[in-house]
Amino acid sequence: MILIKRYGFRITVVILLAMIGISVYSWSTRQGPPLPTIKQAPDFSLLDLKGTPVRLSHTDGKVRLVEFLFTSCPDICPMTTYNMVKLQDKLKAQGLWGNKVQFFSITFDPLKDTPEVFKSYGDRMGIDYSGWNLLTGTEKETGDTARDFGVLVQKMQDGSFVHTVTSLFLVDQTGKIRKVFPMGEDMDNETILKMIWQLTGS
């Protein structure tokens, strides 16, 4: 009792400083190292499922995750979208979905991926359209957008597409690409989520 009376204030200060130190450490661990800026993302103009023009810059102020795909892809594209849906669900639970974070999926194959086909794909995958735009356009427009981002894509004679497997882009609130992720089974959702948290300050 005597020690508490004599040193109570000092003990309280020490405890508070320790708690602050733990909080700062936890925050810095969650934030991770600063993300580099790769380049300014191209400000595309494509059409959503309702035929409304959408520009990347329309969502400035939000963190964006941009995916390139075609819905008839047998493996890597649906696996990537499936992983993104899992990210979507976590962001919804944290109150970040739609207001601080926006997803985009852009098709390589607008001739086959009509709005109806693309919508069916989105419904099947569990996409929440309140924070996720499925975008299309002419074959040239979508192909040019992919190439502007740095995605190499080639249409094969059978109508399928081959493309680089790093076709998933993290774009910050000012339109700068901060990270390019591998797709499919090589995706690390925890790393992607931590980088999204870092950019949103959550």
Rank of each mutant, 00 (worst) to 15 (best):
Q157V: 06
K140L: 12
F9G: 00
T138E: 09
V171P: 02
F70S: 03
D89A: 04
L69W: 12
G137R: 06
R10H: 11
L46S: 02
R147K: 15
P42S: 02
K90L: 13
M125H: 08
S167W: 02
G98M: 07
L111Q: 15
S26D: 11
D128W: 00
T29D: 11
D113C: 06
L35I: 12
T174A: 12
D148S: 08
R124K: 13
I2P: 00
V162K: 11
V117A: 13
G21M: 13
G126K: 05
I15V: 15
S57M: 13
F161L: 11
G98Y: 06
M187L: 10
I192W: 02
K86T: 02
G122E: 01
N83R: 12
E67C: 00
F108H: 14
T191R: 14
K155P: 07
L65P: 07
T191W: 03
K119E: 04
L168Q: 10
P110G: 06
K112H: 15
D48C: 01
T164Y: 04
I177Q: 05
L152Y: 09
P182D: 08
N133V: 00
D186T: 10
T107A: 02
L56K: 07
P182Q: 10
P36E: 03
R6N: 14
T136F: 00
L47K: 14
E185T: 12
T164H: 06
S202F: 12
M195W: 05
P42R: 00
F169K: 07
Q198D: 02
D43S: 03
S28M: 14
W132T: 09
D158E: 08
R10I: 14
L3P: 06
D109N: 10
K119P: 00
V63P: 01
T200A: 03
T164V: 04
E190I: 06
T191K: 15
F44T: 08
G21K: 13
K62F: 01
L87D: 06
K119F: 05
K100W: 03
V24D: 00
E141Y: 05
C77L: 03
Q31F: 04
S28F: 09
S105W: 04
F68E: 01
